Structures are given as C-alpha cells and as structure tokens.
Amino acid sequence: MTEYKLVVVGAGGVGKSALTIQLIQNHFVDEYDPTIEDSYRKQVVIDGETCLLDILDTAGQEEYSAMRDQYMRTGEGFLCVFAINNTKSFEDIHHYREQIKRVKDSEDVPMVLVGNKCDLPSRTVDTKQAQDLARSYGIPFIETSAKTRQGVDDAFYTLVREIRKHKEKMSKDGKKKKKKSKTKCVIM
C-alpha cells in the first residue's frame, strides 16, 4: 500500500485542523484551538488504489514558523489553505509557496490551493482571484467548507493525484537520464 505524506499549511484560523478532522473523523470542530502540530493517518481508496494518507496539520501562528522547514522537508505534497473571508490569509499563500519551493529546492512541488469556509456569506476573496492565482502557479484550486464537508475529500484526493503525477514524471525523467548515460565512448 502506497503511503502519501501530505502537509496542510496556511495562516492561523483558516480551518486547516477543521478540514483535516472532517476528512479523518467526519465531524466539524467549530471551536478554535490553535494547533502546534498534529499528525493523522487514514486509509482510503483513490482511483481504485488503496493508500495510506499521513497528514500533518501544522501551526499557522507566526511564533511556530521555525518548525516549518522541518515538516516541509518531509512532506510530499501540500494543501495551501486560505479562508475566503480573510484576504490576508490569501496573500500569505505566496509566502508559504515560496518557502516550500526553497526548502524542497524545487520549482515543481505537488500543491493544491484550497479556499476554505465557502459556506460563509462574508467572502472577501473572489473565486476568480483564487483561480487566477492557482493557474499562475500551475496547481489545482478547490473551494471547501469544513463545516458542510463540501470539497473536503476532493481537496485531499486531488493532492494525492498531483503527487502521483509528480512521481510518474520524475521516474520518466530518471529513465531518460539513465538511457543517456548508457551511451559509451570508444577510443581507438
């Protein structure tokens, strides 16, 4: 069974824990209790493949930012979460993405942009803004509501699919490099 290491990042209060708990335990946590770091595991079937999701729910508070490099190193894919009623959390996505790329030393890291709290009427981040940002990053965008469960499975499952595509691409690139290195030079 394939294991996928997913990391949920975003500013404090955007609903990272609520999304994760909704996926794992099928219930909505409405009281806000700032996370330092929590880890969850769940076995699911995605596109006919049974897999184990190892999900790291991270601290959004700035005082825990020193811990970010460590979990970013171990993560295979990242859910970059903002709240649709919090423009600052949307603007912060850029910083999370840049930090992930720096730590992973790669421009090509599996990510999904997630606009959470889409059940709320007080939207300050337009869907088109988020779609445009995701398009500019070359990553999928999904709106979710941890409260109603809308888009929750889709967000995590899409990230797994992005990781699969990335692994497939990397193995193809690896095979191309191996083929090239088999060419021999004969000096007579």
Rank of each mutant, 00 (worst) to 15 (best):
L56F: 11
D33W: 13
K5V: 03
R41P: 13
I24H: 09
S39Q: 07
A18T: 09
I24D: 12
T20Q: 14
T35Q: 02
G15F: 01
V8L: 10
L56V: 06
L53A: 08
V9K: 01
A18P: 00
L53W: 07
G12F: 08
Y40E: 05
Y4A: 09
N26Y: 15
G60K: 03
N26D: 07
I24M: 09
K16M: 04
L52A: 09
L6G: 03
S17Y: 00
G48V: 07
E31W: 09
E62H: 11
Q22V: 02
Q25P: 03
D38M: 05
T58D: 02
I55D: 00
Y40P: 01
I36P: 01
E31A: 06
L6F: 13
D38K: 00
D57C: 01
E37D: 08
G12Y: 08
A11Y: 08
E31Y: 10
I46G: 08
Y32H: 12
D57M: 01
R41F: 06
L53N: 07
S39H: 03
A18V: 10
F28P: 01
I55G: 02
D30K: 09
E3N: 09
G10W: 00
Q61P: 10
G12R: 03
K16I: 02
K42W: 03
Q22K: 10
L52D: 06
V45E: 06
V14D: 13
T58I: 10
G60T: 06
Q22W: 06
D38V: 04
G15M: 00
T50Y: 04
D47P: 05
L52T: 12
F28G: 02
E31F: 06
K5M: 05
E3R: 06
Q43Y: 07
I46T: 07
N26W: 15
E49N: 09
A11G: 09
V29Q: 12
Q25A: 09
V45W: 06
F28T: 02
G48T: 11
I55H: 02
C51F: 11
L19G: 12
L53D: 02
E37P: 00
T50V: 15
H27T: 11
K42Q: 12
D54K: 03
P34S: 03
K16E: 05
Y4G: 08
V14P: 04
D54C: 02
Q22E: 07
G10L: 02
I55M: 08
L23S: 15
Q25H: 13
E63I: 05
